[in-house]
């Protein structure tokens, strides 16, 4: 089936099978491999992207459901000149990652979190990040990074 959408500001289109997951389309058709597949069962959040401005888990959505949508992946967050998004910068500054596997999903989820909860408390950050799992269990610095970024967004 023919599918078209905007990804990181660029129009893209492709011919895909109807059963293609959005994350498969992003990684295999568009070769944007920053979006990760962790659990593949909609629990870990490594595949989180923004669909029309809302954070969603791209492993649990069909590519067809995103027809005509505006998608932002981790690759689309930094500015064209390479300046990091405040959330990415805060994760770097506060060492909000260990192995880094969950990081793209954490960052995309955290951007959406701060958009909906400006100036969140530590408690709110922990509660609202419950859809993102870090198997290194490095939550402490992730929470610090989100808190720091919220002051700059």
């Amino acid at each position: 089936m023919k599918i078209s959408m905007t990804v990181n500001g660029k129009p893209v289109s492709a011919e895909v099978e109807a059963r293609t997951l959005l994350v498969t389309f992003i990684r295999e058709n568009l070769r944007l491999t920053g979006t990760h597949v962790g659990c593949d069962t909609s629990q870990c959040g490594a595949c989180t992207i923004h669909l029309n401005g809302r954070a969603v888990k791209s492993c649990n959505i069909l590519a067809m459901q995103a027809e005509g949508a505006d998608i932002v992946t981790i690759e689309g967050l930094a500015k064209a000149d390479g300046t990091l998004h405040p959330m990415q910068e805060a994760f770097r500054e506060h060492h909000g990652l260990q192995c880094g596997f969950c990081t793209p999903g954490m960052v995309m989820s955290a951007v959406d979190l701060v958009k909906n909860h400006p100036n969140p408390s530590e408690e709110t950050i922990r509660a609202e990040l419950d859809g993102n799992l870090c198997r290194c269990t490095g939550y402490h610095n992730i929470v610090k990074a989100v808190k720091a970024a919220s002051a700059k967004m």
């Binding site: 888990k57 989820s109 859809g131």
Partner: peptide, 9 residues
Amino acid sequence: IGDRMVRNM
């Protein structure tokens, strides 16, 4: 319900 990303879909 679920988590924030699930609630968005």
